[in-house]
Design a protein around this nucleic acid. Structure first.
Lengths: 153, 153
DNA sequence: CACTCATTGAAAGAACTCCCTCATAAAAAT
DNA sequence: ATTTTTATGAGGGAGTTCTTTCAATGAGTG
């Protein structure tokens, strides 16, 4: 960990678990003075170690019954095609994440949809129309054994 | 969306973007009274629509240079093997997410590691030793085109 | 030792937030 | 139309939090 000591690690660890934790409580948990804790926290935010705070939502309670991982293979790799591809992905709200990966396929997308109909429509109308895509392979999540966005600090 | 009106949607949308937003500010942004806003927020939390709050961290700044998606195929599906499998996954901090999926493989894991050495060690010492695993296919992220944990409310 | 540099701790006022109470208004139901 | 239910607004007190200032401690260096 680049330049982070034990105390910093505990701070980010703690804030990852409870983003609403006040500096006051955080300080007392770490047996640190309010001031020292506050400055560390601010530094971690300024340095970008802590990027932001967010509320986590229950996707099912919001009506997103489907979560899928899609592997895309491309056959065109020129600049323009790539750029159009990336722009579409960026704008598409259903796409939560998109990674350029090693392996058979070129991209792996994490996608949410209301239901299978909605998902199917998304694949047909968005993914199949993406420029340069030659293969699409869907892996729909049947069950989330584990799902967190917390790094093992 | 099950029982959420337009205002609720805006609340979760807003809190997803900024988990530290105070009720006071949220209310004034939505042109709502503090009281009404507060009660809605509490309700959303109680109903579990908002599950929790967290600080998001920059994985690279914490030294996690590798993020990979691993597909596992299993050949044993009896209760005991499954349970041991799930327990291991649950405890393993490197594994950020694990989904039982449709498609060729049975599981898709999202894994972080310090570097490729660390990742390789993880695959050999943890994944290969998992009970009933017959195939492992790694897809390492070369680039994150998009990475969010925000639902398109 | 004297010096710097970095980090910490205590204190305190201003600012802000939470959360409750009471009253009002709109909507739904009987 | 009357009652019941549900959501809203205004106000305000109690409590908490932020953020600054000033002093102290300790580590490392010449």
């Amino acid at each position: 960990m680049s330049g982070l000591d034990r105390v910093d690690a505990k701070i980010v660890q703690r804030m990852q678990k409870d983003g609403k934790l006040s500096n006051t409580k955080l300080a007392s948990e770490l047996a640190l003075s309010e001031t020292a804790c506050w400055r560390r926290l601010k530094r971690l935010e300024e340095e970008g170690v802590i990027t932001d705070y967010q509320a986590n939502l229950d996707r099912r309670k919001l009506g997103f019954g489907v979560m899928a991982f899609v592997q895309l293979t491309c056959n065109q790799h020129d600049a323009e095609t790539t750029e159009r591809f990336e722009r579409t992905i960026e704008q598409c709200e259903n796409v939560m994440a998109c990674h350029n990966t090693t392996g058979e396929a070129d991209f792996l997308l994490q996608v949410v949809a209301i239901d299978l109909d909605d998902y199917s429509r998304f694949v047909d109308q968005v993914l199949r129309k993406l420029p340069g895509v030659s293969a699409i392979s869907s892996n729909i999540s049947l069950r989330e054994l584990k799902s967190s966005t917390r790094l093992p600090v």
